[in-house]
Amino acid sequence: MTTVAEPHRAQPDDDATDPQLEAIGPVVEKDRAALIRTISIVVVLGLWEVLGRQVNPLLLSYPSKILQALWSMMLSGEIFQAILESGKTLLLGFLLATVIGVALGLLIGRYRSVEAATDWLVNALYATPLVAIVPLVTLWFGLGFSAKLFIVCIIAVFPILINTASGVRNVSSSFIDVGRAFAATERETFVKIIMPAALPYVMTGLRLGIGRCIIGMVVAEFYTAVGGLGALIMKYGNQYDTAAMFVPILTLALIGVLLTALVRRAELYFAPWKAN
């Protein structure tokens, strides 16, 4: 230990706390879980394929036929265009909801007066199933892009806002004390203590928000101008082409899973101390 050159100087406390060492058990566990999951997927898809062929094709399709439909939609480019269009609404709406939700959530969580001024409205709107206002929104914004954007945004903003606010309220008083002990100003307390401490809650809000964004997007596409994945579902539904209808549905599921996983990764990255 004493003769080791500087760059290699081992960290003396490694063995006690290295998370890598602890992780060996869980890694084996993880592999097992992945194996079981794969088997489960194969079995379910297989059953679907077999049983789906027995049923009236109007009611249920089956994987191989859906793949065919996907292929032809890829050739025509239809599916890509729909994904692009929906993605635009989704990402912009989510971004807007994040900015508004986090900013308002920080203020509501920190300042009693802001909370008192807004909490009744926030709670009422959070409790309202906001799909109910879609017809109203189309009156305000027409059937274009801005209507979709508004719907996606307003549906996602509340879980983000509410989680952010409760994150701020739940900042441990001992962290606040540290800031005060070092004579931090209100602004410094906000930026260096409250925001990082509330971050895990914010990320949870974002994860919930993403799910709601997708719901909002599909609903908006059902009711407003033709376009995007929601419109594809309507179109093939009207044509009684069930296999083709499954393509955008499964695409939506995939988008939901991917985005949620992405936020989860971000959660681990930004709040490693909450990992376990």
Binding site: S174, F175, D177, V178, A181, F182, A183, A184, E188, K192, I193, P196, A197, L199, A271, W273
Partner: peptide
């Protein structure tokens, strides 16, 4: 005030900061 420093009974480190960053907290301010 920064004329007084405080060592807490429970260490009260900020969990989102590394050891070095925790030490730098007051200096940053």
């Amino acid at each position: 005030g920064r004329d007084r420093g405080f060592v807490f009974q429970q260490a009260s480190l900020l969990p989102w900061r590394t050891a070095a960053e925790n030490i730098e907290f007051g200096l940053e301010l």
